[in-house]
Design a protein around this nucleic acid. Structure first.
Lengths: 365, 365
DNA sequence: ACGTTTTGCCAAATCGTCTTGGCGCCAGAG
DNA sequence: CTCTGGCGCCAAGACGATTTGGCAAAACGT
């Protein structure tokens, strides 16, 4: 026998409020929604509001949605929540921004899709439920080809741009994030700055390498000499760093700073460095990328790294959706031009000025 | 000027299908929903289905929900998606199970709440939207006091049990997870097994310590001799392990295995061990807890650890909710008895048999 | 041939809200 | 006194599905 303490709560409807306030449902609706172009005396307004308050009235969103053709729900489709470390932050950003706008955020997880074509099924699921807007977040794509369905509804892309340039998108500015690291290192006095690049072909590897080379060139430094490549994992970082250090003929040849493609590689780099009796940051500064919890704070010394704007992408995507839905003129414009979000450096303790030494051979002129 | 390619798609309704099939909307509804106790000729059924198919008809869920008093949406409230590493897996499990049942999963993030009382606001938000059920997931609680609102709707708790024992819950079986590690270690021949405990007072620290002691006692080993305590971070693991190793007068006194409260502490332990010239697992085996991505696979050697059943908790919670909603008799029973989900050991490479040595002094009899 | 089922389908009510159009009343103007 | 125009409120009609109750026609039994 099931315990029947679980009473079906009796929902109070707009009729109940109307009855309690001694007015019609029309008036209740007008008062509670502040409907423009309607007049109601202050006395009546007061009675209605009091009645609604006392009864704890909350409008039935399904009914309201049916009438207004708006579900007050946004849909977020994300590729492999589980495998991509920071999707949680995207969800968080989107959810909080949605709450601020009094919307609900629903989520569908999509399997990782190597192709550019987005599967229409998930989008359709949201359309069936009359989502007011849809966000599609991808991880490892440059461009993505959204299904027709997404054009019929306010939509925003996260992490990739639309091949047809019809849907607005938000993507991290990996390139300038990487460049800012080199700038920072240079400003601290480093000249021999190595880069442990990734060997997988995703937008992030290209962007970060480009940023490294941009900044090295801008600083008048050789953009190729200290580039090593490895798998984007701790083991790859270890191998790459080992090669980098062992090839250096002497102390004067050794890089004084190492920028790693990501935090996992940096973690491997720490081990390779420690094994050689070197210390961070005294002998060599190390910088990571991703700010992938819990690595940076668990390493010793804590790792200076670059954070991805996950939270911001989620929040901005929702904000953009709101703009499109409300047809505010500044939104939905020029969707072909993706919005680049900056990746800020998170300063911790793995960077220091290089130990003093004169002019060095890595400058080019 | 906004590009007006964004056409408002014309939704096909049940009327359109009815017209196309030359029947009434009633019949269309009956056919498409397989409504019991209604008769329709095979011929008609065929025509209706064909018409629905051809028009790509999808019922408007809001309208359906309004009529059937069911939104086909479940609400998940989770404390601090961002700060708790694995909440993503809970969401994933819940979402996939929801999809299997043709339900949508909506999410609200709640701020971390040190008190036992659940804030009613978030629950209310879901009730307003006529969620068919609500899941509340907490991290650092033993017990939780759900608001009245949650009793009026199918509800399930994750990670904590209901003080009033009215709402079913799913929680990880930390205690036996910890015990199974010790059993495993003992079966490999270890006798001096240390535990690096956590110093914060959460259910997990108590459960894991209890499990360690249970199993040590059961194996006839001293459950107190090798317990050290530290902050539940890499630094705490480093400190605790350093103390543990430095106190050992000789090689014969040193533990041959170290079980850490969590993977972050294990990460610190790795460093302390390496600094003393010891190697894992040859000199000492190490086991973590949490299977917190990306630590276990980024460490060298890869860390053997215990996984938390996050995905399963999410999925089971949704399944339970379905059972309650459909009033299947086996569900919603005995909610006072939380369901313990097992924490499986994930074997990697940080465990080996201890290097041979005879009877040792840590046995008690 | 004449009731009685059974079969196949449908009209209308319903869910709870928003929204359109209009109706009575009172005040001020003519 | 009548007319006019604003003010304050409401009745009724969507919205798009499900569900209830019933009505013809066909099938069956005698």
């Amino acid at each position: 026998m099931r315990t029947e303490s679980r009473v079906t709560r009796k929902q109070v409807g707009i009729r109940d409020v109307a009855a309690a306030a001694g007015v019609s449902v029309t008036t209740v609706s007008h008062v509670l929604n502040d409907t423009p172009h309607t007049r109601t005396s202050d006395d009546t307004r007061g009675r209605v509001k009091a009645a609604a308050e006392k009864l704890g009235y909350q409008p039935n969103r399904l009914a309201r949605g049916l009438r207004t053709q708006a579900s007050e729900m946004l849909g977020l489709i994300t590729e492999e929540i589980a495998t991509t470390p920071h999707a949680g932050k995207i969800i968080l950003g989107a959810q909080e921004e949605a709450s601020r706008n009094n919307l609900m955020l629903a989520i569908i997880n999509s399997s990782l899709n190597p192709a550019v074509d987005i599967d229409a099924t998930e989008v359709q699921a949201f359309l069936d439920r009359q989502a007011d807007g849809v966000i599609y977040a991808t991880v490892y794509h440059d461009e993505v080809n959204p299904p027709e369905e997404m054009l019929g509804v306010p939509a925003v892309l996260i992490g990739a741009r639309d091949v047809r340039r019809e849907i607005p998108s938000f993507i991290p500015d990996e390139r300038s994030g990487a460049a800012s690291v080199i700038d920072m290192l240079v400003s601290r006095g480093h000249r021999r700055i190595a880069f442990a690049a990734s060997s997988v072909d995703v937008p992030a590897t290209r962007g970060r390498l480009l940023g490294y080379r941009d900044a090295m060139l801008a600083a008048g430094l050789d953009p190729d000499r200290f580039v090593v490549e490895g798998e984007a994992e701790a083991s790859g970082g270890y191998d790459a760093t080992a090669r980098l250090l062992d090839v250096a003929a002497s102390h004067d040849q050794r890089p004084t700073a190492l920028f790693c493609y990501n935090d996992r590689m940096a973690m491997g780099a720490y081990r390779a460095i420690a094994e050689r009796g070197l210390s961070i940051p005294a002998d060599i500064s190390v910088v990571g990328f991703d700010d992938q919890d819990p690595i940076p704070t668990s390493l010793f010394p804590p790792l200076t790294t670059v954070a991805l704007p996950h939270y911001e992408m989620g929040a901005r995507a929702v904000a953009e959706l709101m703009g499109i839905i409300q047809r505010r003129p500044e939104h939905g414009l020029l969707p072909g031009h993706p919005t680049l979000l900056t990746c800020p450096i998170v300063h911790r303790e793995s960077v220091a000025a290089p130990t003093g030494q004169g002019r060095d051979d890595s400058e080019i002129d």
